[in-house]
Each structure stands twice: as C-alpha cells, then as structure tokens.
Write a protein that binds this DNA or RNA. Structure first.
Length: 493
RNA sequence: GGCGCCGUACCCAAGUGGCUAAGGGAGCAGUCUGCAAAACUGCGAUUCAGCGGUUCGAACCCGCUCGGCGCCUCCA
C-alpha cells in the first residue's frame, strides 16, 4: 500500500523492514482528563490502519503508549487533593471504556512511561556520554545543535527556530530550542532516583525509550496527531537517532484535527466534546452511536481536518441507515423470487473488491472506500428489484461484513440497528398472529405500540379508513410508520 | 514574523494534468404501495475562491490576490 510520509512529504510504498511484519508506534494520550473526539479520531485512524495491514496479510505489532507522568497530571492531582496515581488510574480506565465503546482494537502493547524508567535513564545517560546532552542543576537537556538533521521532519531550519518569541526561555539552556530529557523534581512531587538526582523524565524521551524497547531501534511506522510533528516527534527523532546512530522510524504518519466551527478542538479553547459526552447526548443506543461516529470520522481523509457537528453526525447516521436497511433485506427470505442475476452480482462484487483495495491502498482513502460501499449498495438494490437468490444475498452480506470489518463498520446484527433520523426510535414487531412486542424506552412507546396494533387489526379487516386515521394521527406527532415485507411494522420519529 | 495546510453543488466530501468532475446527506418529480414508508428511476456543479501564466489540454502545475485554519507553548 501507499502511505503518506511526513518525513519525505509524499506518498510512498510501504515496505516494512521485515517483509511480512509491520511494527508501528502511535503516541497515545496523557491521562489527566477524559479524552475527546480528537483523541478518538487518532485512535480510529490507526485502528483502521492496523486492521487494513492485517487484512493485507501482515503481522502487525502495534504499540500505543500512555503518558502517565507529566506536569498536567501532577497539577490535576494537586487540584483534587489526591495522588497522581489515582488520577492516572481513573483516566486510563476511562480511556479503555471509551475505546471499548468505539470498538477500537486494543494495541498489542500499551506501555506506560513510568514502567520504563530504567530504559529512560539509560538512554539519557548515553546521550550525556555522547556529549549531545548536558546536565544543569538536576535537569538534563538535549542539545539541538548536536544533531545536524534537526528539523527534517517539520521542515524547519535551525535558524528559523528562534524560540523565545512565545515562551520564556530557560536561561540555563545553551540554545532556546534545547529540550528537557530529565526534570528535577520539587519537594513533594513524584520522583524517581537518577544519576542527576530525583526527578522525572521529559515528555519526549519516554516515547523513544518505549518504542525502542518494544519495536527495536528502527521500526516502520510512527504515528500521531499532526500537532505532534513539532516539537514532539522532531525531538524524538533527534534523541533516538543520537542514541542508536541509525534511522528511527521509516514512515511518519499524522492525522488531521477534529474541529468545531473550523477551529481545532482543544482543551485550551474549551471547544471540545468528550467521547463520553457524545455517547450521553446521542439519542441512539451506544452501538449505533459508535458506528455513526466511526462512519463520520472515516468520511473524511485522515490527513484532513474534519469539522464536527450534530448535522454531520446525523448525515453519517442516515448514510448508515440505508446500508443497514439493505442488510436487513438481505437477511430476509422475503418476497424476492429466485430470478437472480448471478453474473451481474458477481460483476458488481468484483468491481467493489477492486475499488476497496485501490482506495485503501491509496494512503487509506476511506472516503473513497465508503463511496465504494455505497456504490455496491446501490447496485445490489437494483438487482434486488428483479430478485436475488438466497445465495446471492448471503454472499453480498458477507462481503459487506468482512470488508466493513476492516473499517470497523457493519458489524452490528442488522436487527439491532435503529432507524431514525433524529431523537429516539423503536420498532415494533407484529407477527402474523398480531402479537406485538419490543422494549420500550419512552412512556409513549407503549401507546404507539397499541396504535400500531389497532391499525394492524384494522388493516386485517380491510378497514383502511381506520388504518389511515391512525397513521395520520401518528404522523401528526412526527411518527412515521413503515409496513415491511415480512409483515412487521417499523416506526420512527 | 517563520513554516505549512485548505477553499470542489444547499451541506459534507473524493478527485491533483486528458474518457460523462466519485460518493453521501438534504431537496424535487416519477415508479411501486389500499394509503404510506423503504427501495428504484430521473433532475441537480458547462464548472472546481478570484485573476493571470505554462501546456495541444488544468479543479489539478506556476505566480499573485482574497478568504479560512494550523504549527512554532501542553496538545491526537
């Protein structure tokens, strides 16, 4: 497959160092707060990348870290007068809850910074020994001037990197861009013993230590949000390459932001939605919300920013409604005669397979992949008008499910899908004997169910006047009824 | 100030030198339906922010202008 490499600024053919094995490291989260949609996007992008690589037949070792020691964590703990470890445990748990709801695959390794102190210290000691870092009063800084290629990822030249325009420069640094490898701790702060006194690691060094430990000195893919390109990833490259004397990651992959009103979603702007919040606010059940969110996030190419809104989410939901509607019809034995168009169907499936592969190979062009699914939906629907054999239906559904799985989509039992454009929704199944049943979520639901039963009985008697009155009455309350081929009535509002 | 990204129909969004500018949402009309809904069919950008240039040929390349955003500070 082709993948865009930030390091070279172009799409490149992915050639893992070991032919059948892809090793990738993705910067995870700092666990000091609930994660928001932006974090979800990053998680889902790399989730899909992993799934696709596996689909391609690669063995994939996927490492995603937790930053579990950091100024923000300490600050949070202070504010809430509890220990930093309590903060960490709470938000790791919350992170798992969110990832689980989003059906994000669990990485193969999820290292924590604090479990790698000996590696971190060893790495810093080596950098000091090599003379590319210096020790000042318990702090250790990496000397950017020592690394010739500094700036190659972000495309910044050293002369341009005149810091101080926006930050106060630590006087003890030799150069404003030098960054901390080790920070001396103040009394009362969490600390680890080191040759330079008690302290904690700087932010960048942990990722070098953990990626090298779990993936080796040079590995294939290093990913994260594009806000990490500078300085985080630039610094990782400098320190890692200084340490190993060899290339760090071959391919650097960065996802775009989630925006609100075209502005980056961020803690500091306060314009963010946490994942938990979105699940709470959505009127659909969790699995449906998760799928709508995923569809929405994948409907824009991963490198572009994408703007979140209720409208955008419900557009994604509507697109999925059409797909799940087809899935239901494919599962029903229903009215279709066995006319078939085996050849026509095969042609469509072959066309789809090619489109799927091509779009995914092209730098994970998921919007194009979704278009391919929609195209297949339309083609199959057309054939369905004529009639599809049982076998054809099964094959088609299979294809949606197996290829959809690569995107983490279309895995819900089709009966569990909720068809509604907004608000809440339910469905009442009335079988031929007229008995009805399904869960209620709303006090109104029981009444609606009764109306549907009354209407059903009226229709049995061919009393269409009464049936229509009931339909209209419900319609006036914004409730739409759909009589389905299998004799059930579905409603939505 | 430095570096970079983006501007495609009512909305979202592919396409980045050459067949009719994908796909989705919303909308309108028709087929189907006892009536509906769903599905299907048809309609919808002579045009890709604007202006110049390169080219036989540009939404795609170059330049300028306008507009939006991002990184340079913790950030997915």
């Amino acid at each position: 497959m082709n993948i865009y490499n930030t390091l070279t600024g172009r799409k490149e053919i992915l050639k893992p160092l070991e032919p059948d094995h892809v090793r990738m490291y993705v910067c995870g989260v700092t666990v000091y707060d609930d994660c928001h949609l932006g974090h979800a996007r990053s998680a889902i992008v790399f989730d899909v990348l992993k799934r696709y690589l596996v689909h391609q037949g690669y063995r994939v070792t996927y490492v995603r870290n937790f930053t579990d020691i950091d100024d923000k964590i300490i600050k949070r703990a202070d504010q809430e007068t509890r220990t930093w470890t309590e903060v960490v445990e709470q938000y790791i748990k919350a992170y798992y809850r969110d990832m689980d709801r989003l059906h994000v695959v669990i990485p193969d390794v999820e290292p924590r910074a604090t479990d790698h102190m000996s590696e971190i210290i060893m790495l810093i000691a080596d950098l000091l020994e090599k003379g590319v870092a210096y020790h000042v009063q318990g702090d250790v800084f990496y000397e950017v001037a020592a690394y010739q290629a500094y700036g190659r990822l972000s495309g910044r030249k050293e002369a341009e990197l005149l810091a101080g325009a926006r930050v106060e420069v630590d006087e003890r640094k030799k150069h404003p861009m030098d960054f901390a490898l080790w920070k001396a701790s103040k009394p009362g702060e969490p600390s680890w013993e080191s040759p330079w006194g008690k302290g904690r690691p700087g932010w960048h060094i942990e990722c070098s230590a953990m990626s090298i430990r779990h993936l080796g000195r040079t590995f294939d893919i290093h990913g994260g949000g594009k806000d990490l390109i500078f300085p985080h990833h630039e610094n990782e490259i400098a320190q890692s390459c200084s340490y190993t004397g060899q290339e760090f990651a071959q391919y650097w992959v960065h996802n775009g932001f989630v925006t609100i009103d075209q502005e980056k979603m961020s803690k500091s702007l306060g314009n963010f939605f946490t994942i938990a919040e979105i699940f709470d606010k959505a009127s659909w059940k969790e699995s449906v919300t998760a799928e709508a969110l995923r569809y929405f996030l994948l409907s824009t190419h991963y490198r572009s920013d994408l703007n979140f809104s209720d409208h955008a989410l419900s557009a994604a939901k509507s697109a999925l409604d059409n797909l799940y509607d087809l899935f239901q019809r494919l599962e029903e034995d229903g009215a279709c005669q066995e006319v078939d168009g085996v050849q026509a169907l095969d042609a469509h499936l072959i066309k789809f397979d090619r489109a799927f592969e091509q779009s995914m190979d092209d730098d994970l062009n998921t919007p194009k992949t979704l278009a391919a699914f929609q195209r297949l939906r339309a083609d199959v629907n057309k054939l369905g008008q004529v009639g599809l054999s049982k076998e054809g239906k099964t094959t088609t559904l299979e294809r949606f499910r197996t290829c959809g799985k690569v995107l983490g989509l279309f895995q819900l039992p089709s009966k569990e899908w909720e068809f509604s454009s907004t608000l809440l929704e339910g469905s009442v199944n009335i079988d031929s004997s007229g008995s009805a049943g399904l869960e209620t979520g709303q006090e109104d639901d029981e009444w609606i169910k009764q109306q549907i039963e009354k209407r059903y009985n009226a229709r049995e008697r061919k009393d269409f006047a009464t049936a229509d009155t009931i339909r209209q009455e419900l319609a006036s309350k914004g409730i739409v009824l759909e009589d389905r081929a299998d004799g059930t009535t579905r409603w939505k509002r």
